[in-house]
Design a protein around this nucleic acid. Structure first.
Lengths: 190, 190
DNA sequence: CGAAAAGTGTCCGGAATCCAACAATAGCAT
DNA sequence: ATGCTATTGTTGGATTCCGGACACTTTTCG
């Protein structure tokens, strides 16, 4: 049942071609012919794999969204006590493999294909759950703190992707300050 | 008459796979199955393009040799007076595009496929011709000076490939000293 | 030595891809 | 508006590639 390697190769080439083209063009400006030319595939083959360029983008965004989703669940489930800073940075290193692809796709915002929005939605959902499970009396609205946590984490992820996770320790201190302020609101019983 | 793109793609993938494998294995240790696995091509396809792995290596070496040959002729023909230092460094930047491939293939020395030997042979031939054309009375044997020029230039090429052509100016002064000493022998009428 | 494992080279049917058409639509300039 | 050009999808036959088999040689290892 597993795919023919030719399918894997062409899909890889097509997707890589789109990412490359997105460095010099808007997604709207990219044409199917462009993608085929860069990936060295015929247009008939392209349409054998995707309905159109929007379908291609959808599937790429969906793929990374699913990958991120599994990682998010894993990371949040692994949290014990005081490991929230590991969470903040952990997701960044998780996605480091797909550094270029993610950074590029973050710049694309189409109605049904918005990777950054998907990431934010997933994180927000997990933060709400996390706050609810921690069960303390909140001084401020829980949704506000969830949004705060999500935004801080998203900032870390994007910064790490853009600058390389090597120097991530340099900002750890600054992030820590913010993190403590947030956690103080989330778990006031500490 | 022009090739089907599929042929171009598979040959590109196969050749790239060999180069990658040569970073961790000797050419003798590399197996056809390895190449096929890395390049995601079937063995039957491999043998449709090449007789064996030696044939693959031959064609790669021949390709770069031909490319180098044309550049060498071009550079030497462009020499007027006092531009010999431009020649010394020019060939280095010419080959910069294929930096990784050349550096890797330079480590392979097979009886009928030795890129470094080919480069040296081509350079030596051109240096001999260049010295003969300059027509001065030589203080030392012409072949010796040709060999000298070839070796200096080969050193520059390999150094530039290994370290990046960006900082090539750093060694320009040192090379210049050697160059003057050599040219003094070649053109004693100056 | 002798058997097992790995590698080589070749073959074939079926699958994926190419290529060159084609009509239809969208965008753009005059 | 009117053409003109670019782009979009679709189709069918030719080409290339894949997967797996086969016989054979070489290497590895007990």
């Amino acid at each position: 049942m597993s795919k023919d390697v030719r399918k894997i190769k062409t899909e890889r080439d097509i997707q890589q071609a789109l990412l490359t083209l997105l460095n010099s063009k808007t997604f709207r400006q990219v044409t199917v012919a462009d993608i085929c030319q860069h990936s060295m595939t015929s247009r008939s083959t392209f349409y054998a794999h995707y309905l159109d360029k929007y379908d291609l983008l959808d599937k790429m965004v969906d793929g990374f969204t699913q990958l991120f989703k599994s990682r998010v669940n894993l990371r949040f489930n692994q949290i014990i006590n005081g490991e929230t800073d590991a969470l903040l940075r952990g997701l960044a290193v998780d996605m480091a493999d797909n550094r270029d692809a993610l950074l590029t796709l973050f710049t694309v915002h189409e109605p049904n294909a918005d990777l950054e929005a998907n990431f934010r939605t997933l994180l927000l959902k997990e933060w709400k759950q996390f706050i609810k499970n921690s069960g303390g009396n909140m001084k401020v609205p829980e949704d506000l703190m969830a949004s705060m946590g999500m935004n801080v984490q998203m900032t870390v992820i994007q910064w790490a992707l853009a600058h390389g996770e090597v120097e991530i320790d340099a900002v750890a201190a600054a992030i820590n300050t913010i993190r403590k302020a947030i956690l103080l609101q989330i778990q006031p019983e500490d």
